[in-house]
């Protein structure tokens, strides 16, 4: 297996075009957190023609609702949540410049089409590996919707966050191709 690719945010179109499904990536830089409740609000802002709490261009959103931080730590456990709940909102954010998403589980056709058209990538993080993922998070700051608690939008500074390319911008889908490769017909 080849080595992991190191990438730093914001991601360029070229960064994304190089990625293929199955690639292991270590992500560094600034990323943003948002779950369903925050996505709903972000898309409502866009529909109302208002500006977002952060600029989407080239950015990566991590679908996570962390557990509370212990004293002296930036964040608690921080593994991904299931991505399909964000499928209704993701295409609009991709059209607005969002370049990457991190979550777990397959995406729907609308999200995949938007990724292909606008060159975005979907990374799978390891669901349930919250303690491990937290070790790559250097700092966390709530920048919007504090009232949503774990669902607030946070700006995270990450170093070598381990993820796998699950959907690339060329139409590849590891959830489909990986399973097909290992399925045994009875």
């Amino acid at each position: 297996m080849h080595d992991a690719v190191r990438l730093t945010t914001p991601l360029s179109r070229e960064d994304v075009e190089k990625l293929r499904i199955g690639d292991r990536v270590l992500l560094s830089g600034i990323i943003y957190t948002a779950r369903d409740a925050a996505h709903k609000r972000l898309v409502e802002l866009l529909e109302a023609g208002e500006s977002l709490p952060f600029d989407l261009e080239g950015q990566v959103i991590y679908y996570v609702g962390p557990s509370p931080a212990k004293p002296g730590r930036p964040i608690g456990a921080a593994g991904p949540t299931t991505s399909y709940r964000m499928d209704a909102y993701a295409p609009e954010l991709i059209r607005q410049g969002l370049r990457g998403m991190i979550g777990k589980g397959a995406r729907n056709d609308a999200v995949k089409a938007a990724m292909k058209e606008h060159k975005a990538v979907y990374f799978a993080a390891i669901g349930g590996a919250g303690a491990l993922m937290a070790q790559s998070i250097l700092s966390a700051e709530v920048i919007a919707y504090p009232e949503l608690g774990p669902e607030a939008v946070r700006r995270l500074k990450v170093k070598d966050l381990p993820v796998i390319v699950a959907n690339d911008c060329h139409g590849g889908d590891l959830y489909e191709e990986g399973v097909r490769k290992y399925a045994r017909t009875a």
Binding site: G105, A124, I164, A166, Y175, G178, V179, K181, A183, A186
Partner: peptide
């Protein structure tokens, strides 16, 4: 035998 595998990535 389904091939789903760890995290469903095969």
């Amino acid at each position: 035998s389904l091939g789903i595998g760890p995290q469903g990535l095969g």
